[in-house]
């Protein structure tokens, strides 16, 4: 396992694999998002209580999943960056942060648009919503740390320390609906007894989830590639100046 990781820590090899995946990830993103949106918006039935507003869920729930998964991924790769000093690990956490922040923001906005007709308020201060808001602030703080250091390797370490401390928020978000009596409904897809929702809704939801993941992979590859090339460009310029 460790040997495998070291193999992928080489930026050139990473770029080669990423470039091979990239066209496929674009295709899967388009296909999955189109199918998911079509199934979610036109095929799946309207809810007997919520009516058509239930369709917001197909955008909202996968965004919230992604918000948490991206942060977890950043925490893991920051830890790898701190422990094994992988050059790609730091870059990948940096590249993932703005994407994760966008997913968090999307989840918050769609959630509040759904909350207005359902709960009668755009925002309620329950545990799930508040912890998601904290997650957004953590993403913003993380990006601010990257922006405030001139030395990139120092910025990487400082940001990694921050992201690892903030990782404590992830289980809090996940279990907030079980620990507190929240207005937000408890988990209904990933439960111990299997999914609690009907397949006509579950299928488009899962397709959307996969589509979001593949969207993330696509943007992520673009961003990491930009980071690696940018770093090489800087090295070239420094070398040129030295000659």
């Amino acid at each position: 396992m460790a040997i495998d990781l070291h193999k992928y820590a080489n930026p050139t090899r990473f770029l080669r694999i990423a470039n091979a995946i990239f066209p496929w990830s674009i295709v899967t993103t388009v296909v999955l998002l189109a199918t998911g949106l079509y199934l979610g918006l036109f095929v799946s039935p309207a809810d007997y209580q919520q009516g058509e507003t239930v369709r917001i869920m197909f955008v909202h729930v996968p965004a919230a999943w992604m918000a948490m998964s991206v942060y977890s991924m950043m925490a893991v790769s920051s830890a790898a960056g701190l422990i094994w000093k992988h050059p790609v690990a730091d870059l990948s956490a940096k590249a993932a942060a703005p994407i994760g922040a966008c997913f968090t923001f999307l989840a918050l906005v769609t959630g509040s648009l759904w909350g207005q007709p359902m709960w009668g308020a755009y925002w309620v201060w329950d545990a799930r919503l508040t912890s998601m808001l904290i997650l957004l602030f953590l993403y913003l703080g993380y990006m601010a740390v990257w922006g405030s250091f001139e030395d990139q390797s120092k910025a990487a370490k400082a940001a990694a320390i921050l992201v690892l401390i903030g990782a404590i928020n992830i289980p809090i978000i996940k279990f907030s609906v079980d620990w507190w009596n929240t207005l937000h409904q408890p988990a209904s897809v990933a439960t111990m007894d299997g999914p609690k929702i009907h397949s006509s809704i579950l299928t488009p939801l899962l397709i959307m989830g996969l589509g979001y993941t593949s969207l993330f992979v696509t943007i992520f590859i673009i961003r990491v590639r930009t980071e690696i090339l940018g770093r090489r460009l800087r090295m070239l310029r420094v070398n040129q100046l030295q000659e």
């Binding site: 508040t130 904290i134 602030f137 953590l138 913003l140 703080g141 601010a144 740390v145 405030s148 250091f149 120092k154 400082a158 320390i161 921050l162 401390i165 903030g166 809090i172």
Partner: peptide, 22 residues
């Protein structure tokens, strides 16, 4: 984290306040 920065004050509050919420 912010000690080496010249104007770390604002960043400090951005980093610390979310973690104070619990």
């Amino acid at each position: 984290l912010t000690v080496a920065m010249r104007r770390g004050g604002v960043l400090l509050s951005l980093l610390v306040l979310p973690l104070y919420i619990p």
